[in-house]
Design a binder for these strands. Structure first.
Length: 752
DNA sequence: GACCTGCTGCGGCTTG
């Protein structure tokens, strides 16, 4: 909560909307020293007080969205009786719930509204107390809400009989995900249990397509959702993209060879084998960020560790206290919180090197600048990262670091085209025009349907198939699943013993289903991997995937420091570490399916075809872009989309990953060996083979997309996909990751 | 060529 309101409306705190707040709430606003309410807070009062419509409040981080929702909500709850929970707040993070608990407690104490939090770290005692005398506001995670349905199914009505509103925070973190689908289902099931609708309030960072968000919070009724947007525009942006030339690949392979980790104390660079380019990027980061507060987004956990270690050693060499700390999902809560509070305190210079962990949610205060090392995963994510800088009226500062291969006579065409650099330029262009990707849509979420069906059975002790279809599919979040598909879905679950059917047709939990539901891991809609716990001197540093080969004597970089493995306790899944002078960056498990949007690839084509050099490029980046454009022209790629080079044929559909992936499967279906690198498909063979395969694709018209999934190695990507019948899984995969119509259009254009 | 999120009951122990 900020004590510096920025609204320009001088009548804010005495406006007619403000006058509608409960007298005690008005008093609380005054005691905060606020001179006026912010725009979003003002706008939210009327629709939330009315309590007849769903509402979305969207505004940038730290704009007072929580207060915007809860000033009117608390005004309504101030004189409400106990006996039932009156408002539910659903948040995606335990840390966020703890934050909001502290903030709301101040407002609610004076109003006599009890505030309860409920998540995995909350004691049984507190939970029992709420169950005994339910009242006020409940702050909860989707997983704990799931647990309530399964474990307290019969007391749900009593708990929530007087429920007036449901608040969903960080809406954008839920839209298009399994977890978001789970939440939609739980909220719908709650309304079915209460036999009435309960108005929903969604809080979100600014969203591109508000209709998607509206449809998310009220499936089937998005048009009636009231939208409150903050009008605050983006401030000034200072931007630089820096290019680096990577050493030739074979030189790099030598440098990172096997015995690297046993080389002992690291000498001056690059003697311990790090490629020169990472060191150059690190040196510039060190020089520019040292002495101030910054966030460095490094894309992968391995890169976070690499740069955190590199920057820490640069501090040591300069005889400075360390200013650079890593932050990612495998680091222990303690290490992460230490890093966050060091940055937030601003008592000494601190920069955090992070993955997506600091994109949202946790408040680390204002930072001087943002660094992005490597291609950002999406324009939307880049925008979110940029939102972390330039809060106090000053300009936002973004530095991007891009490494491109040093070319040799044998460099493949995609390398010569420097697709990473060009993609980054394209994404910056789109960012500057205020475009960003909409959230994913189109998935069937069968994995979450498995979870929700089992949960529904557990809640009621048993359920008729027809009732389950009505509750989950017909008007629920799985509306795209038709009745006959639901029937084959149920047969599949029956065969796999997740469910069984009693003589009167009631669905019950089967042997396997019983086991699943009775384990606490069932409450989450997403899967998790088994991991080792890394410990040193009795302190937990974090976790590592269990398939990582860790044995006594292995050197490791973790938490931005260097370690040697002292002992591995396989039974307890604990690895003991001691500080060491040498180390190597570990591999983390990864499961990526890309998702570059059509629009980004179209923009890339424009970047290649253009002659102007963006002013934000440094000299090296200009040089690299000029080389890339020369290659583009030499191969006449503005006139043709298919070229032969040596024994390979390259196809340029200039479309997003769904189209590229679909074309790759279609070519594979014709027996061709295909590899993709970013926007380019590289095919072994003759150009005539590729052309006739594409012609066959076009002539066949729109093939059933699912038939192409025969060439996908593994379609079971979500938690319970292993229980879903193959045919349905194929349909879900096609809906998520393929674009048949786009691929047909692209094939026609390539053949022209 | 990736990233992140979440979690209960109960047995066995100590302590008042």
């Amino acid at each position: 909560m900020s004590s510096h309101p920025s609204s320009s409306d001088p009548s804010g705190a005495t406006s007619s909307a403000f006058q509608r707040l409960h007298a005690q709430v008005q008093r609380w606003v005054w005691t905060q020293g606020w001179k006026e309410l912010r725009g979003i807070q003002e706008a939210a009062i009327a629709p939330i007080l009315e309590g007849t419509h769903d509402v979305i409040l969207s505004a940038s981080t730290a704009s007072g969205k929580t207060e915007a929702a809860f000033l009117p909500i608390c005004s309504r709850l101030a004189d409400a009786a106990g006996g039932s929970v009156r408002a539910i707040y659903v948040g995606p993070l335990k840390a966020l719930i703890n934050d909001q608990f502290e903030r709301l407690d101040g407002l609610c104490t004076g109003l006599g509204i009890p505030v309860h939090r409920w998540h995995g770290d909350v004691s049984q005692g507190h939970k029992a107390q709420l169950l005994k005398s339910p009242a006020g506001i409940l702050l909860i995670t989707p997983e704990s809400l799931e647990a309530l349905f399964i474990r307290q199914g019969s007391s749900l009505v009593g708990l929530f009989s007087g429920l007036e509103v449901i608040v969903i925070d960080e809406l954008h973190a839920f839209i298009g995900t399994e977890r978001g689908c789970q939440l939609q289902s739980l909220l719908h099931r709650l309304e079915l249990t209460l036999r009435r609708t309960v108005p929903r309030v969604g809080l979100s960072a600014t969203l591109g397509d508000m209709s998607l968000a509206a449809e998310f919070i009220r499936p089937g009724g998005g048009a009636k959702v009231q939208l409150c947007n903050s009008t605050a525009g983006g401030g000034e942006l200072l931007l630089q993209l820096r290019g680096y030339r990577r050493r030739a690949p074979d030189a790099r392979q030598l440098a990172s060879s096997e015995d690297d980790s046993n080389r002992g104390p690291g000498g001056p660079e690059p003697a311990d084998g790090r490629p020169e380019d990472e060191h150059d990027v690190g040196a510039h980061l060190f020089k520019t960020l040292r002495g101030t507060h910054n966030l460095v987004f490094a894309n992968s956990r391995a890169n976070v560790e690499l740069y955190a270690d590199l920057l820490r050693r640069m501090c040591e060499e300069a005889r400075l206290p360390n200013e650079f700390f890593p932050h990612h999902g495998n680091l222990s809560k303690e290490l992460r919180e230490e890093a966050e509070s060091a940055l937030k305190a601003k008592q000494r210079p601190v920069s955090l090197v992070c993955t997506t962990t600091l994109e949202m949610g946790i408040d680390v205060g204002a930072v001087q600048s943002i660094a992005q090392v490597g291609v950002p995963p999406s324009v939307a994510s880049l925008r979110q990262r940029l939102g972390r800088s330039g809060r106090k009226g000053g300009p936002a500062v973004l530095r991007m670091y891009l490494q491109e291969a040093e070319l040799t006579s044998t460099s493949p065409l995609p390398d010569q085209l420097r697709v990473r650099l060009v993609q980054s330029v394209a994404m910056l262009d789109l960012l500057l025009t205020n475009w960003f990707e909409p959230p994913a849509s189109g998935a069937y979420h069968f994995s979450t349907l498995v979870q929700q069906l089992l949960s529904l059975i557990a809640q009621h002790g048993g359920v008729k198939a027809g009732e389950a279809f009505l509750a989950l599919c017909h008007q629920g979040p799985f509306a795209r699943v038709a009745r006959h598909d639901f029937a084959s879905f149920l047969r599949g679950l029956g065969q796999r013993e997740l469910i069984s059917q009693s003589s009167d047709g009631t669905l019950l939990l089967g042997r396997v289903g019983e086991r699943l539901v009775n384990h606490y891991s069932f409450y989450a809609a997403f899967a998790s991997v088994e991991e080792f716990r890394l410990v040193s001197g009795g302190r937990t540093l974090g976790t590592m995937p269990i398939d990582q080969p860790l044995f006594v004597g292995t050197y490791l970089i973790f938490g931005g420091r260097r370690w040697r493995v002292l002992a591995v306790q396989g039974d307890e899944k604990v690895v003991e570490l001691e500080p060491a002078p040498a180390g190597r960056v570990p591999m983390f498990e990864s499961t990526g399916v890309g998702g570059v949007h059509d629009r980004v690839r179209e923009q890339m084509r424009s970047v290649y075809a253009s002659d102007t050099l963006p002013r934000y490029l440094d000299a090296r980046a200009q040089e690299l872009l000029t080389e890339a454009r020369a290659t583009f022209r030499r191969w006449r790629l503005s006139e043709r989309a298919i070229v032969a080079s040596g024994r390979q044929v390259h196809v340029f559909p200039w479309a997003g990953d769904a189209v590229v992936h679909t074309l790759a499967l279609a070519l594979r279906a014709h027996g061709l060996a295909v590899e993709t690198l970013g926007p380019v498909l590289s095919v072994e063979g003759q150009q005539s083979d590729v052309e006739s395969a594409l012609r066959a694709l076009v002539a066949a018209g729109e093939p059933r997309a699912e038939s192409l999934t025969r060439y996908v190695a593994n379609m079971a990507l979500e938690k319970h996909d292993g229980f879903v019948p193959e045919e349905l899984l194929a349909r879900d995969y096609a809906a998520r990751y393929l674009d048949v119509q786009g691929a047909l259009r692209a094939a026609q254009q390539v053949l022209q």
